[in-house]
């Protein structure tokens, strides 16, 4: 089942046929039927990361075009190329020529399509219409609700589920055997937990752990996981609660720059962290409300950091019981 010469296991163990995909049985069956008829509609794959959306798209294309899949397939990632101009240009260039194949269309896989703005999606909808004779789109997204209705109505929609424990165990086992690793029983548990149902993450974790030792233990997995976690927002909040505002904001900036995380991500982390702090429940509620307000302003404002600083100032007040 080892497919490629790749040394990166997420690629090495990427399924190559419909049968190799683990989980999502129903979806795989339906997409396979469509593919066998050599004519697919536009497809929309919705679901969490690492559940097999890209893999299924790749397999579909390889089944359609066989050896010639490379010439007839274009992969774009909307979250990196958000400008609809770029997408349009590339789509146009690609779709202008006909498919070199018995299948009369080419396939464009647009990953993370929910990263596109509504405006860009409107443009995409036109593009889908204009090139429908020469081109089929496979869109993937985390949340189908972020895709505008006109696009949804033009696609066959498939909803991917998070991988269950038994499926995840199969994958872990497969890699353990393929790479001759000694994966201990309790490591299965912690790998599953850390994976959050994301198959890519679990494979990466195994490879990262295996780079240290072939004996994969629970402890080793946990060490890797905690090393890789973004440094704690908690420290920042504790500085603020203790009244040291300057230390808090410097630390926050430091974390945001080092881990390159956005203001939105910081807000989410703070909102969760509030409930682990040693303060009165009443104050937790007020801080949560304040956090919500700031999250709202982040969207409206122009400088994330100023918004976060103002939130930290509220934490200083909370530390003095004055909020």
């Amino acid at each position: 089942m080892i497919n490629k010469e790749s040394e990166i296991w997420t690629e090495k163990y990427r399924p190559e046929t419909f049968e190799e995909i683990i989980g999502q049985d129903e979806i795989v069956k339906r997409v396979k039927n469509l593919t066998d008829s050599l004519n697919i509609p536009h497809l929309l794959f919705a679901g969490p990361a690492g559940t097999g959306k890209s893999s299924l798209a790749l397999i579909t294309v390889k089944q359609l075009f066989g050896e010639k899949w490379h010439e007839n397939y274009l992969e774009l990632n909307a979250s990196d190329e958000r400008g609809i101009d770029v997408i349009r240009q590339k789509v146009k260039d690609f779709a202008r020529t006909k498919a070199i194949h018995s299948v009369p269309f080419k396939v464009i896989f647009l990953d993370e399509a929910d990263a596109l703005t509504r405006e860009a999606q409107q443009a995409l909808r036109r593009t889908m219409e204009n090139y429908t004779n020469t081109c089929r789109f496979i869109l993937s997204c985390n949340y189908s609700s972020k895709i505008i209705d006109p696009i949804q109505s033009r696609c066959a929609i498939f909803r991917f589920k998070l991988l269950e424990k038994k499926d995840m165990d199969k994958i872990i086992k497969r890699i353990g055997e393929g790479e001759k690793l000694n994966i201990l029983e309790d490591a299965y548990e912690s790998l599953y937990e850390a994976s959050e149902g994301d198959c890519r993450r679990v494979i990466n974790l195994i490879q990262a752990t295996a780079s240290i030792s072939v004996n994969i233990t629970k402890e080793l997995v946990n060490t890797i996981v905690s090393n890789a976690k973004p440094k704690d927002i908690k420290v920042v909040l504790e500085y603020a609660l203790s009244g040291d505002f300057i230390a808090a904001k410097d630390k926050l900036l430091d974390i945001m720059l080092k881990e390159s995380i956005s203001g939105q991500d910081v807000i989410k982390a703070i909102q969760k962290e509030i409930w682990n702090l040693q303060i009165e429940p009443e104050i937790k509620v007020r801080l949560t409300e304040k956090t919500g307000e700031i999250e709202f302003r982040l969207v409206e404002g122009s400088d994330e950091f100023i918004q976060l600083e103002s939130l930290l100032a509220s934490f200083v007040l909370a530390g003095q019981g004055k909020i």
Partner: peptide
């Protein structure tokens, strides 16, 4: 990201784990 069919953003986010993996010279070559 290009090699693994994911977005650059995601690769950046998962860099701490990825960093362990890509220490291997063979991978760096690939």
């Amino acid at each position: 990201a290009e090699y693994c069919h994911i977005s650059v953003k995601r690769a950046m986010r998962e860099f701490p784990v990825i960093k362990y993996i890509i220490q291997k010279p063979e991978i760096q070559k690939q």
